[in-house]
């Protein structure tokens, strides 16, 4: 069995600031790390590797430094990696990203299970998995809360909707995105870190894939970000409650009565 896990590299903290002059995101000093939610997908794959001997490959689309996250995943135990890197892919929204990833998966060819994290913490969309599933015409199980092999060529998964638990059975190949509660990702062992440098990392550029250029990068992206700003909580005029705790409490009770809240 072959599993491909799609991973993204993201800024290491969510505390990004907006440059007051340029109004662009200020990512200075922020190192890239593997999207935390993708580690749950890697862990699921490694679990299946431990129990069924599956082969696990990682796939990412992004600039060359995304190779670091691929190495990180290989240090966790994945067998190989693919990096899709080309200027033509830059500026892609979820649709254009999903297209390139789907074309790469077609070239890889024989993946039985394609795994995604629940969402990337920078963009927070969770759309790339279902888009890839659609482009590959495969069934999908999103936000899987558990997953096990239930036959030689079949997985059974649970999905928690807002107030319903669904059980789904999929015949492979299939696309699955995982909830972060599914498992606790393992840490790389020193031995696996060492091994990771010997594992194959394949880099594919534009010409290595069969691509329709109109569907790539910024020009292949239907969505446009027109404005970026920091959210300002709506400020209110504060009435302080003063004096001893008991005095302050009676001021509050009076105010709540005035507002007919009690």
């Amino acid at each position: 069995m072959k599993i491909v896990v799609c991973i993204k590299q993201v800024p290491e903290t969510n505390n990004v600031k907006i440059d007051p002059v340029t109004h662009n995101l200020d990512r200075r000093g922020l190192a890239g790390v593997m999207n935390p939610f993708d580690k749950n997908a890697v862990e699921l794959a490694l679990n299946l590797k431990d129990t069924t001997g599956a082969e696990v490959a990682l796939l990412t689309m992004g600039p060359d430094d995304y190779a670091e996250s691929v190495r990180e995943g290989m240090a966790m135990g994945a067998d190989s990696g693919y990096l899709l890197s080309d200027r033509a892919f830059a500026g892609a929204d979820t649709l254009a990203t999903g297209y390139v990833i789907a074309q790469a998966l077609k070239k890889i060819g024989d993946a039985d299970l394609i795994l995604f994290g629940r969402q990337a913490v920078d963009a927070d969309t969770g759309q790339v998995g279902p888009i890839v599933a659609e482009f590959l015409n495969q069934p999908q199980i999103t936000y899987a809360a558990s997953l096990r092999m239930s036959g030689p060529n079949e997985v059974t998964a649970e999905r928690l909707l807002e107030d319903t638990k669904q059980t789904l059975v999929a015949q492979l190949p299939a696309v699955v995105s995982v909830r972060s509660e599914l498992n606790t990702p393992r840490y790389p062992t020193p031995r696996n870190i060492q091994l990771s440098f010997e594992k194959p990392l394949t880099v594919w550029h534009h010409d290595d894939l069969d691509l329709d250029d109109t569907r790539l990068g910024q020009s292949g992206s239907p969505t446009v970000v027109t404005k970026v700003y920091a959210p300002e909580p709506v400020k209110r005029e504060l009435t302080p409650l003063t004096g001893t705790p008991s005095e302050a409490a009676s001021q509050l009770i009076k105010a709540l009565k005035e507002h007919q809240l009690i």
């Binding site: 969510n14 995101l25 970000v225 920091a230």
Partner: peptide
């Protein structure tokens, strides 16, 4: 970015 940034799209 975890609600730290708002974008108009």
């Amino acid at each position: 970015y975890g609600d730290n940034i708002m974008c108009e799209i």
